[in-house]
Design a binder for these strands. Structure first.
Lengths: 221, 221
DNA sequence: CGAGAAATTGAGCCATCTCAAAGGAGGTGG
DNA sequence: CCACCTCCTTTGAGATGGCTCAATTTCTCG
């Protein structure tokens, strides 16, 4: 799929599950006044549907942020029918993980200032990408626009820009031309109160459908 | 239970489910700097555990806000074992609803100003309480402190107070001595962009464990 | 009636927003 | 390979919404 392609439209009934194989996407809502709130970033291995229950009306939209490989998986009939228990379990784990992320995001937006908010998001992305083998201590490739980041953390793109500049000046990390380059991750985590364990990301394994070695973003043409 | 009693402590493993029968509670997280973010209000009929999966580590705390009647229900063994499918289904529906609420809250905190944010929360509470028969067009009893509201919507209690004053002056509703008294609900919904359908609250029925007629808050001593 | 909690109010500050313009960077047609 | 276009980033200036701090008043309840 192209960058900026719609995968899921708010209000549609769920009849099929989309798994990200390559590329980035985001889950979001558009408010009456046109503002957008992003509620999740979807990375390789993630499922676009936050709770893949057949027939439910979806309360968010999903679109790609980069060229992506998205695999749709059809669901036959209502869940809990013809579906092994294990699968149900793993859907539940996935749903649990989504909730944890959402609560963490809510706290991030509700109770941190712009500076820590952005730093925290960077830390989260770093952890998640590390698990996928898409990040290391030096940093990671990040296709996010400052405006996208702004919509995720409840700020203005202008202000995100200023905060980024501050990070650069303070020699914490730089975010330029699609790459987040760390100077020291620990320092960043400390200042924004990021706890890498908060997600219990071991759980994430349950919902991954692809093998341990994930496709690299760099594999992409 | 007393008001202000802890029902669930963050970090504990889930081994039992708590159903609210009477009174209000809230789910929250305390941040490293001591700030609190409330992520949900729990009303009669609600389950304190947002995803009752046995053994999972809970990433939030829950405490009562009023004197409450809370019924613990033990879970025998891991979920999906000795549990009928229907139950699993309803846990999943519950989890889905929690997610919808969380996304709505995130958008509320991330993308609305103080005024609309508080108005929106009031609207949500009104809808949920209406379903329980605890609210009507004239308003509802609301035991929330301005500080609690502030912690839910990412503001300061001082500022919540000023916003409340504005609502009063503009003749939209008043919030005094534990009662939200509407002048006109529709006007409020319109101004803050509240859509009563967003939660698909019909779904809520799935996770309720108590009969249609709920205990009234006013039944409480 | 007294004590503690919650609500209210004022004054001043500053974080973040808005508006606007200017500078890259990559992509495409000629 | 250049000119141009578009999208993104960067920067400035000024406005303001929401915060902090602190004092006062009102409620609630024993």
């Amino acid at each position: 799929m192209e960058a900026n392609a719609t995968i899921i439209k708010e209000g549609a009934p769920l009849d099929c599950v989309h798994v990200m194989h390559m590329g980035w996407a985001c889950r979001y809502n558009i408010m009456k006044d046109g503002k957008r709130q992003i509620s999740a970033f979807l990375l390789p291995g993630d499922v676009c549907e936050s709770t893949p229950m057949h027939g439910t009306l979806i309360d968010y939209s999903v679109c790609t942020l980069t060229p992506s490989l998205v695999k749709p998986i059809s669901i036959e009939g209502p869940l809990g029918f013809a579906q092994p228990f294990d699968q149900m379990q793993s859907i539940l784990s996935g749903s649990l993980l989504e909730q944890r992320l959402l609560r963490a995001w809510l706290a991030n937006v509700g109770r941190r200032n712009a500076y820590n908010r952005v730093a925290w998001l960077i830390c989260e992305l770093h952890v998640r990408l590390s698990i996928l083998g898409l990040a290391d201590e030096t940093g990671f490739d990040c296709p996010l626009t400052q405006e996208v980041i702004a919509d995720a953390v409840g700020l203005t793109s202008v202000h995100v820009n200023r905060v980024m500049k501050q990070f650069r000046n303070e020699n914490l990390f730089s975010f330029r031309s699609g790459r987040v380059a760390f100077v020291g991750v620990e320092k960043i985590r400390k200042l924004c109160g990021f706890d890498p364990a908060y997600l219990h990301l071991d759980l994430a394994q349950h919902i991954k459908t692809t093998p341990t070695r994930r496709p690299q973003l760099s594999d992409c043409p």
